[in-house]
Simulated scan of single mutants.
Amino acid sequence: MSGRRSVIETEKAVQGKLGDFRLQREQMAAVANIHRAAAAVRQHLENSVLRPVELTWTGFVVLWVLWIWGETETRHVVEEAGITKGTLTGVARTLESRGLVSRAPCPEDGRRVLLSLTQEGEALMERLFPAFNEEEAFVASRLSAEECLRLADGLRAIVAQLEERGEERRQELLGGAEPAPRRSGRRPRA
């Protein structure tokens, strides 16, 4: 469980709070449980497999991207990992200081940077990934192989919807305006 209340308790509380609203409840339940499941999985994997090798989730994802795709320009690592450039800068520095990642200037444009795994990074991923996958199997063990495939297909459909229509929808909702810059949540004191 990712929070102090179970999924069932949360769904009952939401129903009680939003009972009179006209909502698309099945879709709300799907998206809310994607978030809850992702947070619970991430927390479990960080605490069981990643912490002993002193990796964060984001650090692991960056290593995974480089392990799968090989040497990659930082802007593409950012896209593949779903993180900001600033986050990648800090994570890459940490991984580089640990001897897991190396940086090199891009031959076509020296302003751009390429990241790649070192031999130590490759060796770590080869040791770590089987244990990571064992925990993926544990996490999904209440589902049959067929249910896992159906779930994966459903999640791919959600990702495809956002990749194909998300920008159009954002433009529609914001009247063509650019989104406001992200803020930390801090506001100036009065």
Results as ranks from 00 to 15, higher is better:
Arg5Tyr: 06
Ser6His: 05
Ile8Asn: 01
Ile8Thr: 05
Thr10Pro: 00
Ala13Thr: 05
Val14Gln: 09
Gln15Trp: 05
Lys17Asn: 02
Gly19Ser: 10
Asp20Ile: 02
Phe21Glu: 14
Arg22Thr: 10
Leu23Asp: 01
Gln24Ile: 04
Gln24Asp: 13
Gln24Leu: 11
Ala30Met: 08
Val31Ala: 07
Asn33Met: 05
Asn33Arg: 13
His35Ala: 14
Arg36Asp: 03
Ala37His: 11
Ala39Ile: 07
Ala39Cys: 06
Ala40Asn: 07
Arg42Phe: 00
Arg42Leu: 01
Arg42Gly: 07
His44Tyr: 02
His44Ile: 02
Leu45Pro: 03
Asn47Gln: 14
Ser48Val: 15
Val49Leu: 09
Arg51Pro: 00
Pro52Asn: 03
Val53Asp: 11
Leu55Lys: 01
Leu55Asn: 02
Thr58Ser: 08
Phe60Leu: 09
Phe60Arg: 04
Val61Phe: 02
Val61Cys: 06
Leu63Gln: 09
Val65Tyr: 09
Trp67Asp: 14
Trp67Lys: 04
Ile68Phe: 09
Trp69Leu: 13
Gly70Glu: 04
Val77Lys: 04
Val78His: 10
Glu79Arg: 15
Glu80Leu: 14
Ala81Glu: 09
Ile83Asp: 03
Thr84Cys: 03
Gly86Pro: 04
Gly86Ile: 10
Leu88His: 11
Leu88Arg: 12
Thr89Arg: 15
Arg93Gln: 10
Thr94His: 08
Thr94Pro: 00
Leu95Thr: 10
Ser97Gly: 08
Arg98Ala: 15
Gly99Phe: 10
Leu100Tyr: 13
Leu100Cys: 10
Val101Arg: 12
Ser102Gln: 10
Arg103Asn: 05
Ala104Trp: 01
Pro105Asp: 08
Cys106Asn: 15
Glu108Asp: 12
Asp109Leu: 11
Asp109Arg: 15
Gly110Lys: 15
Arg112Leu: 15
Arg112Tyr: 13
Leu115Cys: 11
Leu115Tyr: 06
Ser116Ile: 02
Ser116Tyr: 01
Leu117Glu: 08
Leu117Ala: 03
Thr118Trp: 05
Gln119His: 07
Glu122Phe: 08
Ala123Leu: 09
Met125Glu: 06
Met125Trp: 03
Met125Gln: 06
Arg127Ile: 00
Leu128Trp: 06
Phe129Glu: 09
Pro130Asp: 04
Ala131Thr: 09
Ala131Gln: 14
Phe132His: 11
Glu134Cys: 06
Ala137His: 07
Phe138Ala: 13
Phe138Gln: 12
Val139Asp: 02
Ser141Leu: 00
Ala145Leu: 08
Ala145Asn: 10
Glu147Tyr: 06
Glu147Pro: 03
Glu147Cys: 01
Cys148Asp: 01
Cys148Phe: 00
Leu149His: 04
Leu149Pro: 00
Leu151Lys: 08
Ala152Asp: 06
Ala152Thr: 02
Gly154Leu: 10
Arg156Pro: 00
Ala157Val: 04
Ala157Asn: 06
Val159Leu: 14
Val159Tyr: 11
Ala160Arg: 14
Leu162Ile: 12
Leu162Gln: 14
Leu162Trp: 14
Glu163Ala: 12
Glu163Phe: 14
Glu164Trp: 01
Glu164Tyr: 03
Gly166Gln: 13
Glu167Ala: 12
Glu167Met: 04
Arg169Tyr: 13
Arg169Met: 11
Arg170Val: 07
Glu172Ala: 07
Leu174Lys: 02
Gly176Met: 10
Gly176Glu: 06
Ala177Arg: 15
Ala177Thr: 01
Ala177Asp: 11
Pro179Ala: 08
Ala180Ile: 00
Arg182Asn: 02
Arg183Cys: 02
Arg183Leu: 04
Arg186Lys: 09
Arg187Ala: 12
Pro188Gln: 05
Arg189Gln: 08
